[in-house]
Amino acid sequence: MTRIGFCVPFLAALLGCAPPAAQQPPSVADLAGAVRAALDESSVRECQKVVTVSFPTRLVRSEADPHAIHVVEVLAGAGLVRAQADSGPLGEVLAADLTAQGRKRLANGQVCSGPLRLVQVVAVEPVTGVEAAVLIRTLVEASDAPAWASDEAVRAALGLTGPDLREPHLRTFRAERQGDTWTVRP
């Protein structure tokens, strides 16, 4: 089973049939550098949709959904909401609004943290049908995830089902060869 031009990888250097440098696969170190550069330049953030009570709100305790009251109390405990008891014509009311931290962290119905930092390149895979491109499977973490991002009660109150922003999690990037370098677009 021999063909002209066939080269066993470990014999490539010995026989002098290694592919030209432009066709060499990228090193993990080169790709890690490209991912770090792309993350630094773009300030990519990790965001998760929030499913919770709308703020500001006034909940009449005798008529409100007990879950909504629980959500307000949990978020108040995390410093995201300022809640105070009040009274109204229908009885005791729980008035709540976002704190400055809550407005910063719960903007536009999302919890966002970042920018992201590369923890590790896990795997590199070729892109089918595209010679000058690879997929880079990585572990990344948010550089400024708040402590409450790991609190199960707060995560449940916000309806967060995605990865814990304080823990490294998987993220895939695509890298393309441009000349002698690899460029990543987050």
Score class of each variant (00 low, 15 high):
residue 164 D to V: 15
residue 16 G to E: 05
residue 121 V to W: 04
residue 98 L to F: 07
residue 181 T to S: 13
residue 84 Q to M: 09
residue 165 L to Y: 03
residue 21 A to W: 09
residue 158 L to S: 00
residue 137 R to H: 15
residue 84 Q to K: 12
residue 126 P to Q: 08
residue 23 Q to D: 15
residue 108 N to F: 07
residue 59 L to R: 04
residue 183 T to G: 02
residue 70 H to G: 11
residue 162 G to E: 06
residue 85 A to E: 15
residue 168 P to I: 10
residue 25 P to G: 15
residue 182 W to F: 09
residue 172 T to C: 01
residue 135 L to T: 14
residue 110 Q to T: 11
residue 55 F to T: 04
residue 172 T to V: 15
residue 85 A to H: 07
residue 77 G to K: 01
residue 29 A to V: 14
residue 164 D to G: 02
residue 125 E to R: 15
residue 115 P to E: 09
residue 104 K to Q: 14
residue 14 L to F: 15
residue 104 K to H: 15
residue 122 V to I: 13
residue 95 A to C: 05
residue 94 L to A: 07
residue 76 A to Y: 06
residue 127 V to F: 12
residue 100 A to C: 05
residue 107 A to K: 12
residue 80 L to P: 02
residue 163 P to M: 02
residue 183 T to P: 00
residue 156 A to L: 13
residue 7 C to N: 05
residue 18 A to C: 14
residue 107 A to T: 12
residue 152 E to G: 05
residue 70 H to P: 01
residue 155 R to N: 02
residue 70 H to E: 11
residue 151 D to F: 03
residue 25 P to H: 13
residue 73 E to H: 10
residue 172 T to S: 07
residue 129 G to S: 03
residue 120 Q to S: 08
residue 49 K to I: 13
residue 155 R to G: 03
residue 174 R to D: 04
residue 76 A to M: 07
residue 60 V to L: 08
residue 88 G to V: 13
residue 7 C to A: 13
residue 153 A to W: 03
residue 140 V to C: 03
residue 170 L to S: 14
residue 94 L to G: 06
residue 160 L to K: 01
residue 40 D to H: 12
residue 88 G to W: 07
residue 26 P to F: 05
residue 115 P to T: 08
residue 154 V to C: 02
residue 66 P to N: 01
residue 90 L to M: 14
residue 91 G to M: 04
residue 95 A to I: 06
residue 48 Q to F: 05
residue 123 A to V: 00
residue 156 A to K: 13
residue 35 V to W: 00
residue 50 V to H: 00
residue 1 M to G: 13
residue 156 A to F: 09
residue 39 L to D: 02
residue 76 A to I: 12
residue 87 S to A: 11
residue 140 V to G: 02
residue 177 R to K: 12
residue 82 R to Q: 12
residue 67 H to C: 05
residue 124 V to I: 14
residue 137 R to F: 04
residue 139 L to K: 13
residue 1 M to K: 07
residue 128 T to L: 12
residue 114 G to A: 01
residue 152 E to H: 09
residue 16 G to Q: 10
residue 58 R to N: 11
residue 66 P to I: 06
residue 74 V to W: 05
residue 7 C to L: 11
residue 153 A to C: 02
residue 62 S to F: 10
residue 17 C to L: 14
residue 132 A to E: 15
residue 110 Q to W: 00
residue 177 R to F: 08
residue 157 A to T: 03
residue 65 D to V: 00
residue 104 K to N: 13
residue 155 R to I: 01
residue 160 L to T: 05
residue 114 G to K: 09
residue 20 P to Y: 12
residue 83 A to C: 06
residue 133 A to L: 07
residue 67 H to R: 11
residue 153 A to Y: 00
residue 98 L to Q: 03
residue 46 E to S: 10
